[in-house]
């Protein structure tokens, strides 16, 4: 497989996942705040901007973070390279570039999503319907991939892209909220509990959480999002998926590694498997999550160096 094609598949996975995650956090935050007292309001849009790593650029453009400015910037803005619309444009551009290598259905689906969000913008649709369309688009994307793509190396690059992006995104969502809710300025208990529910909902883990715990406990939320091997949005789950895809590409067997990306993925996955949540908290959750995000970025760079942009002598 051409390196450039593998690169495109990897980034289709990452961009689609990024669009989906951004839509989820926007949507959940919006709905949660509809019933909140106005004084907590302002506090609660800023973390969203932080999650996407866009604070500096955002505040150059807007004075305050609220539903409208957050939606403008995270939803459609062409100035924000990580806005949902930009992610979908880039996913589509990658898909278009390699449309001879993916199923026709997958191309038509991504192309359809692109036209759909343009139409919603032209019609002036609000945040809720927009996010809904993007989330549905994300689900359909995974469904079409699953049902129409051959399980070859290309598939594994796509999976690797999705898993890596999702792992990093979940770690970041948890990090930002934890920082705000536990270490940040004191807010009402009621509001705090609502916020944790929103975190769980934004990664579709609320129902799963409630089946196991009767009330919302930050440690338990962190345990689920970081360490639970069963939930498809937990960091551990996704590093497991990533590890399997990397093995499939290189032919390595479990317990070994063929390159630096595999080694780091394996080490991070081990740590998430054997570290307890109490250990993590006593060492500092924020530091742990920061390191996990940094590891994800390093893994991405190594995958690139190994397979996609290696030097030819």
């Amino acid at each position: 497989m051409l390196s450039r094609i593998a690169d495109s598949l990897f980034w289709i996975g990452r961009y689609m996942e990024r669009a989906d995650n951004t839509a989820r956090i926007l949507d959940v935050n919006y709905h949660m705040l509809l019933e909140q007292p106005p004084d907590t309001y302002k506090l609660r849009w800023d973390p969203l901007i932080a999650i996407t790593g866009e604070r500096t650029r955002f505040y150059q453009r807007f004075e305050e973070a609220n539903a409208q400015t957050a939606f403008d910037y995270l939803g459609y803005s062409a100035d924000n390279p990580n806005s949902i619309a930009q992610c979908i444009i880039l996913a589509r551009e990658n898909a278009r570039t390699i449309r001879d290598r993916i199923s026709r259905e997958l191309w038509e689906d991504i192309n359809g999503l692109y036209h759909k969000i343009n139409k919603l913008r032209d019609e002036g649709e609000g945040l809720s319907r927009f996010c809904d369309a993007v989330k549905r688009g994300g689900h359909r994307f995974h469904g079409v991939c699953d049902a129409t793509l051959a399980r070859d190396e290309g598939w594994h690059f796509l999976q690797a892209g999705c898993a890596l992006e999702r792992a990093e995104m979940t770690a970041r969502i948890l990090d930002v909220h934890y920082h705000q809710l536990v270490e940040g300025p004191q807010i009402l208990n009621e509001a705090r509990s609502h916020a944790w529910v929103a975190v769980l909902k934004s990664v579709a883990a609320y129902e799963f959480y409630k089946r196991q715990h009767s009330h919302i406990e930050p440690t338990q939320v962190a345990q689920l999002l970081l360490l639970d091997p069963r939930h498809p949005r937990s960091v551990r789950f996704n590093l497991g998926v990533l590890q399997n895809s990397l093995y499939a590409i290189s032919g390595s067997v479990p317990g070994s590694y063929a390159n630096e990306g595999e080694r780091l993925t394996g080490r991070a996955h081990e740590s998430l498997t054997y570290d307890s949540i109490d250990e993590i908290f006593s060492g500092g959750l924020h530091d742990y999550l920061e390191e996990m995000q940094a590891t994800c970025r390093t893994i991405g760079a190594h995958i690139s160096q190994t397979y996609l942009y290696y030097a030819v002598s």
Binding site: E105, E108, D109, G112, L113, H115, K116, K119, R140
Partner: peptide, 9 residues
Amino acid sequence: MSSPSQAII
């Protein structure tokens, strides 16, 4: 023709 297309236009 696939169904998502119908939704576009």
